[in-house]
């Protein structure tokens, strides 16, 4: 178990930079989610830490040791692959025992540790099965067991749940979190699913075009995205643009939002309230209701404001006063703190 640190990591494939000067610390024992759209460099970063990708510049430390010159097989890592990459010619127990066999753990010890870890991932009785005979969720657990049984310094997970269907994925998220807590290994995982990242991580990092855009605890990043990309990528956001005046932000339709000091703000759809009557708060604007969509407990409203589409989500009951079909002008309002300032240049 060790802290992992990368400094100024850069990797180019031809003209495109998969990693562009990334510096980041992955805290010891933490669960760190790397998030970003496809092609953002998150997988390249993970594979650079594993050693499958040689960075052009920059340093990688596992614990205090620099590892850029160390081969994958000497880095003492555990890795779970998107496809699980179980050895098809070995049983579950043999798969899990492989890393111990490599480390020349005596066979008695080996069997005990394999049994323990299979118990931990709740696969106790399936040791003699072949991977082909397991369900997706079971394979995922085998891959996990195989990666942690050697007590690696860091556990790397490459989209570990993306091959599972939705219901199973939610179960496995909880399961993954439990296993990680119990063994306490520094864990870095890559995902393109923001909800998964928010659920699992103590810390997240958001990448875009090879650059680290934001990092921090999930709630802090969500509540203060600071830039439009993060606001859009993590959750949903309505972004309003205007001119900063002495009293606040003047929107294009003339509305003045007092107390706002940035030219752009993000409004979470769930922070908005819709009403027919004008609300008694200065944090509001008027938009045309285009459509109200029923989707179970939550409802969604699509609105048109100055030609821009805005979105609002609320418990369906709270939207009951609004008409089903679009047309009329309605008021949108939000609490003073819900206007999230965006500081990045456009």
């Amino acid at each position: 178990m060790s802290e992992v640190r990368v400094e100024g990591l850069t990797k180019a494939y031809g003209p495109t930079k998969a990693l562009d000067d990334v510096t980041l610390t992955f805290p010891e024992g933490g669960f760190f989610g790397l998030l970003g759209p496809s092609g953002s460099g998150k997988t390249t970063l993970l594979r650079a830490i594993a050693g499958f990708v040689q960075p052009d510049h920059g340093r990688i430390f596992i614990g205090d040791q620099p590892v850029e010159g160390t081969a994958v097989e000497d880095r003492n890592i555990g890795m779970v692959f998107q496809s699980y990459a179980l050895f098809p010619n070995m049983t579950v127990a043999e798969n899990v025992a492989f890393g111990l066999e490599v480390r020349r753990v005596p066979s008695g010890d080996r069997a005990r540790r394999v049994a323990e870890v299979l118990e931990l991932v709740q696969l106790g009785p399936l040791g003699n099965r072949k991977p082909q005979d397991l369900s997706g969720g079971q394979r995922q657990r085998v891959a996990m067991a195989r990666a942690i049984v050697t007590r690696p310094r860091v556990l790397l997970l490459d989209e570990p749940l993306s091959a599972l269907d939705r219901a199973l994925r939610v179960d496995m998220q909880i399961e993954l979190k439990r296993i990680q807590r119990e063994v306490g290994i520094t864990t870095i995982f890559v995902t393109h699913d923001q909800e998964e990242a928010l659920t699992l991580s103590d810390q997240i990092g958001i990448l875009k075009d090879g650059r680290l855009v934001r990092h921090g605890p999930p709630r802090a990043v969500y509540d203060d995205p600071q830039d439009a990309f993060t606001a859009h990528f993590l959750g949903e956001a309505n972004i309003l643009t205007g001119r900063v005046e002495a009293q606040g932000l003047r929107l294009t339709d003339g509305t003045l939002l007092p107390g706002v000091t940035t030219a752009r703000i993000a409004l979470r759809p769930e922070a908005l309230t819709a009403s027919i009557e004008q609300p008694a708060t200065p944090h509001r604007l008027q938009a045309r209701l285009v459509q109200r969509i029923f989707s179970g407990a939550m409802g969604t409203c699509i609105l048109d404001w100055q030609g821009q589409t805005l979105k609002l989500t609320a418990p369906d009951r709270a939207l009951a006063a609004l008409p089903e079909t679009g047309g009329p002008q309605v008021w949108l309002s939000w609490p003073a703190g819900a206007a999230l300032p965006l500081r990045d240049p456009r």
């Binding site: 499958f52 994958v72 097989e73 990459a85 195989r146 990666a147 050697t150």
Partner: peptide, 19 residues
């Protein structure tokens, strides 16, 4: 990725070849 998995577990080429 199966080969990569073996390497991540510390196996070198001769063992990967054999096993």
């Amino acid at each position: 990725t199966v080969i990569e998995a073996a390497r991540s577990l510390g196996a070198r080429f001769p063992r990967i070849l054999w096993r």
